[in-house]
Amino acid sequence: MRYLAPTTLDDAIQLLSGDPGDCRVLAGGTDLLVRLRSGDAEPDSILDIKRIEDLRQITKEDGGWLIGAAVSSAEMNEHAELKAAYPGVCEAADLIGSTQIQGRCTLAGNLCNASPAADSVPAMVAVRAVARVAGPNGTRDVAVEDIPTGPGKTSLEKGEFVASIFLPAKPDRSGDAYLRFIPRTEMDIAVVGCGLSLTLDNDGTCTDARVALGAVGPKVMLVDAAAEALIGTKLDDAAMQALSKACSDAATPIADKRGTVEFRTHVAGVLARRAAAIAKTRAEG
């Protein structure tokens, strides 16, 4: 097995697209190294992107934030401005694995691992995050929800990888939140996850909303009906109930060792309601 550690993005693209065999991108390694150890993955090469300086930065761009693919969850959560702007995305990243894992794991890795239960993905989708994909034919921007296509599968072409995540600017009086359900209090994987963002006008009416669910389908699910249940309302009880129902209606979970269909369907609605209440408080400032 070859270990490659380029220091520039161009070198990384060249190495990845030129590799004749199975070459895997290594960011934090919190999924890949576990697969190697268990024998689930036996790649020919590993391309470590952590030595590419640009990919380790959190930078402001067009009023939003660009987060390099090698930025760890812990680094995000030590960035006061980023946390203030996107508390939901940061708290989702802060839920992944354990404190030790959070020192390594990345948003881009969480996205490209393509687990339906990934914590940061519904949170990113809720804030219209964009994956900046680098590849031999240049760079393209892809909506985060279009990266995973199913469990363990992505829309990335051979030679492409996610170089950074862009969180676009958001209007005033906006708030985001992410909640997940796990049977323990930490060190676990979402049985259901819900990322939600909303914007209020000055009299408290919801003018925009995005609701994304995790672990209730083969990939992250953007629930338009849930957003519609909130938009135009003052987030009163009726709106919250409609939100819950829309999420439960949209959920198409499987039953497995982590939860039943019935349970996941119900809890999707519960989490959406609770996440909306948090996002509302944040939007109100």
């Binding site: 049977p183 323990r184 209090t185 930490e186 060190m187 676990d188």
Partner: peptide
């Protein structure tokens, strides 16, 4: 130990 859930300290 991910899905065989012994309690963690925060539980």
């Amino acid at each position: 130990f991910l899905d065989y859930r012994i309690p963690v300290a925060s539980d």
